[in-house]
Design a protein around this nucleic acid. Structure first.
Lengths: 132, 132, 132, 132
DNA sequence: GTGGTCTAGACCACC
DNA sequence: GTGGTCTAGACCACG
């Protein structure tokens, strides 16, 4: 469910946060689903429970999960995050456009690149490829 | 010429590297131009010379500048880096496309967003305004 | 494990890098082995932690080790560097051949020198002596 | 006669020393030939006379040239340096052999590499190539 | 004047 | 405990 890459320079708790965040946004985890318990997950991943605790705290702070004392952690209502995520994506896209502009890349080249990728993706899907 | 943003979570030396990298790629600094001396720049920015030294070492390692001992640091021949930078930009764009896809954003929405930005940019230019 | 030669004109951090590089390439350190901690090694060698830090940063940059924050530095998968090292050796050999040529030394003299050394080495091994 | 490469990380005076050293060892400069005057050479190369002065001092220290006050610098008797240079070459070759051994490269591979290079060199000469 | 290295000591984030 | 960054100040080599 969750994989950690020790060669990834990002801190472990951040990797855990990101993994769950994507799972929730993808629909892999739905509203009110139970999160794995801190201890269990720490055992599974062979990492320090404190690290999981911190990841869950961060997820709760951002509103992705909520805690019920004595029962565990649960996924929040996910709809409200969709827009947030979209905004983030478009924000990153804006940054790229700025940097591209500085490097003399035109908006046309960017859109062309995206369309090409998109077509290739469709082709792969038609051929019955496996998304993962 | 160079500005440091203390709210930026990235280390100072990395900000310095990026600033100069863009200046060189943009043509703001041309081949064999002299870089500010380590000590002078450190004074100007009110930061420690070691931090500038580290930034310059990184720029030299990446081939953006070269050092002549006792004389200073100078900008390298820059052409060969243009392509590298383009590749980096398109790589980041690919990442966004993947993430957008996971969030249910279509390629069309992305291209539309870019085109809209692009048109706004042109309009600002026509009006002769200076955004900064 | 690591020795520093203060008579060596090369900077200390570079000596440290080279020592570990050879240890890793020789198999003295294997993939995912833990490197000595920055502070411990600095104490052992009676040098400043910053100097070790710099050496480790260089090793990481070159891909010989990877860092897990809060845990330490670990040896990377080493196989891919073997070829790189071979290429480096033969490159240095090429340089010598050029210089030898300028000095009027023939290829034959060079090969003869190598063969002689090689035989002496074998003899020493047979006698079971330990040169160090 | 002498070229300086500002992108070479070695100090300038060292480049000058090496250039003259090779010229003398190659026979480009012969015993009692007059060296260019410090001032003239400094002007030609557009560098500081101090730097040439230092290079000449180093060449004199090593015995490659001798100074006659008021007349200039002259090349020493060159024969005695041939052996020194040969020794240096073989010393470097020894180092390579050691490093090669650590990397699991056999003496046979080294000699084979040299012979191959040597044959290629001869072929190029036959075809009337221009060495420089 | 220039850059390069090193030390000493501090502070932060991470586990 | 771990590594990463930064400061302050020193010393050296080079031009």
């Amino acid at each position: 469910m969750i994989l950690i890459d020790y060669k990834d320079p990002r801190p472990i708790y951040e990797q855990v946060v990101d993994r769950f965040r994507l799972l929730i946004l993808n629909g892999g985890l739905k509203a009110d689903d139970k999160m794995p318990s801190v201890r269990m997950l720490a055992m599974d991943l062979s990492i320090n429970p404190n690290t999981i605790q911190r990841a869950y705290a961060e997820l709760e702070r951002r509103g992705y999960i909520y805690t019920v004392k004595g029962r565990g952690n649960f996924v929040s209502d996910t709809d409200k995050f969709r827009d947030e995520y979209r905004t983030e994506i478009f924000g990153r896209l804006d940054e790229i456009c700025d940097d591209a502009c500085k490097a003399g890349i035109t908006a046309g080249e960017l859109t062309e690149h995206i369309e090409k990728r998109s077509e290739e993706g469709e082709k792969r899907n038609k051929e019955g490829g496996n998304g993962e």
